[in-house]
Amino acid sequence: MLIPHPLLGLRDSQEFTYLGDAALMQRPDPAADGAEAAFCDYVFLRDNPAGVHRELWFHEQGDRSWLVVTRDTTTHEILGAELASNLKLGAAQ
């Protein structure tokens, strides 16, 4: 597979390490009521869609950036890739 790195262009997926669902970026508020239940969901429950999936890939053999890659799990078509830090910072603003 080839992953369109937003800074480096098309890179071979062998350079990356896969983590999984990009929902892992949404770490629950540890101080909120029901934090334990929220963390249980966060740690143990994942969606596993057949179709478009947003997921985290680490460019471990490259520039060490974490990417959010949008991939169709049924065809392996990659619809986009963004820097995770940009996404997270953008969402915070």
């Binding site: 985290l56 680490f58 471990e60 830090s85 997270k88 910072l89």
Partner: peptide, 18 residues
Amino acid sequence: AGLVYRQMEFFHQCVWPE
């Protein structure tokens, strides 16, 4: 060594980039 560094980068970039 490799796994902890990966985890550190994950929290740095994906959770607390601020």
